[in-house]
């Protein structure tokens, strides 16, 4: 089954679905975002583009990452119910006002984890000491890659929802605003993320590989 068919089936289900896994091709690189994540603000970028050294470093970063990344997403869909205080009920404990507001009016939510794998972390290690500028560009590129992967997944969810006249909310991540990062301890096992995506959690709830994202997309 192709990705969209899988998503369509999961979004049509009326109870919590089992986790499923999708592979993506490398999304096209958003250079503006890449440079922004590399500490070059958007208003500086026109200036930066004239720097031939930067251009050749960027080219090198792209060729280094060319075959070192994989683009995987694990997701499941949960029907939403609400407790007496109006907070959405998830398999994890949380009382986030911001998430509550984000999900107001939704009847289900997509929980997903996206990762570009550990190859990027090895590259960053390799370069951050020997060539800090390349380290920074690789950090930035990794952040852009995983965000672009989330965008690609999010876009497909949105399109499928549209088919049945539904809409999606902005994706919302553990650790953002008042949604505690500790929910990761339940979030990731729900997706069997360690075994299926290779994502592990540190004591302080940070993900490895570092270029991984978890988020919730409300559907209304």
């Amino acid at each position: 089954m192709d990705r969209k068919a899988l998503l369509r089936e999961a979004l049509a289900a009326d109870k919590q679905t089992i986790p499923q896994y999708l592979d993506y091709e490398s999304p096209s690189v958003n250079v503006t975002e890449w440079l922004r994540y590399s500490c070059i603000p958007v208003y500086e970028q026109e200036n930066a583009a004239k720097d031939p050294e930067l251009a050749s470093s960027m080219e090198k970063a792209l060729s280094l990452t060319d075959s070192a990344l994989s683009f995987r997403v694990g997701f499941l869909v949960v029907p939403l119910s609400w407790d007496e205080d109006g907070f959405p009920v998830f398999p994890f404990e949380q009382r986030s006002e911001k998430l509550k507001k984000n999900l107001l009016g939704c009847d289900k939510a997509v929980l997903f984890a996206a990762t570009i794998g550990s190859g990027i972390d090895r590259l960053i290690r390799r370069f951050e000491k020997a060539d800090p500028k390349m380290g920074l560009l690789l950090q930035g590129l990794g952040a852009e890659r995983v965000e672009s992967l989330c965008d690609a997944f999010n876009e497909e969810v949105k399109e499928i929802c549209k088919e049945t006249g539904r809409e999606t909310r902005m994706r919302f991540s553990p650790g953002y605003g008042d949604l505690p990062i500790e929910v990761q301890k339940v979030f990731l096992p729900l997706l069997d993320a360690e075994r299926r995506l290779g994502i592990t959690l540190s004591e302080s709830c940070l993900m490895a590989p570092s270029k991984s994202v978890t988020a919730i997309i409300g559907v209304c």
Binding site: S118, D121, R122, R125, T200, S202, E203, S204, A208, P209
Partner: peptide
């Protein structure tokens, strides 16, 4: 289920 140092903690 823990990633060892240097990539994990």
């Amino acid at each position: 289920g823990k990633l060892l140092k240097p990539y994990g903690d």
